[in-house]
Amino acid sequence: MPEPDVRGAGGVADGSATIAFRGGGFQPQPRRLVPFIVFVLVIGLWQAASWRGWLPDLFMPSPWQIVGAFGDMLHSGTLTRHVGASLSRIALGWLFGTTAGLAVGLAMGIFSVARAGGLPVVSALFPIPKIALLPLFILWFGIGEPSKVATIGFGVFFPTVIAAYTACDSVPRNLIRMGQSFGLPAHAIVWKIVVPGAMPGILAGFRITASIALILVVAAEMIGAEYGIGAFILSAGNLMQTDQLLAGVTLLSLLGLAVSTVLGAVERIVLRWR
């Protein structure tokens, strides 16, 4: 075998070859323009199809018509009224459900008796689509706000319980042992180790319950409400005002985005240590 000739590396005549690169890829890279292009393209195609008359206005209004309907709602003040009604129901229901859910979930995460007693009840009630209970809540609380708030609260409660107690389980045992080894009293172990350690799981649960609250508020408002995004969408559908209907749907998308932005900010602050 001849001595390798370093000078000739990459050359042809001496039979050497450069090693072909075969790594890289399979790693998402930021592509800042692509999201905008796709978004504009989809809306643009939709608008173009409407102009061309491929989409009947009555069943599929153009983006421009939806924006118009949006503007009308904004001017007449119906927008604020509907959004305000929905938001206050979501806020109240979510707050009640989350407060109760955290109390029960943390208790189940910390105390064996609470876990053993709570788990079968939670497992039995969790799978019920909570909107099915609205008629019962209407009988109990009347057609007004309390029945809607209760439905949302109930829907938020169970996922919160599950998120909280599984988050307690995910707190590393060695941290708890450390607390014991330094003689920390049980309440200090709970408040200084278990609860902060469970925060990532609890906050992840908030994302789920926020979307559940949004679903339930729309469903509840469709069953019986004067104001609220759900009621607005339903009545727009009944009157075949599809531009208004889709404006309401767009509103839901924006609302969901806003909620997830807020939760993202909360996560960044609370979980700064990660």
Binding site: P172, N174, L175, R177, M178, S181, F182, G183, K192, I193, P196, G197, M199, W273, R274
Partner: peptide, 18 residues
């Protein structure tokens, strides 16, 4: 001595949020 028997752990056991 506030805690006569005190451990140093293999995995440090630090609270990551503190």
């Amino acid at each position: 001595s506030l805690n006569p028997f005190t451990y140093v752990f293999q995995d440090f056991a630090l609270l990551p949020w503190r």
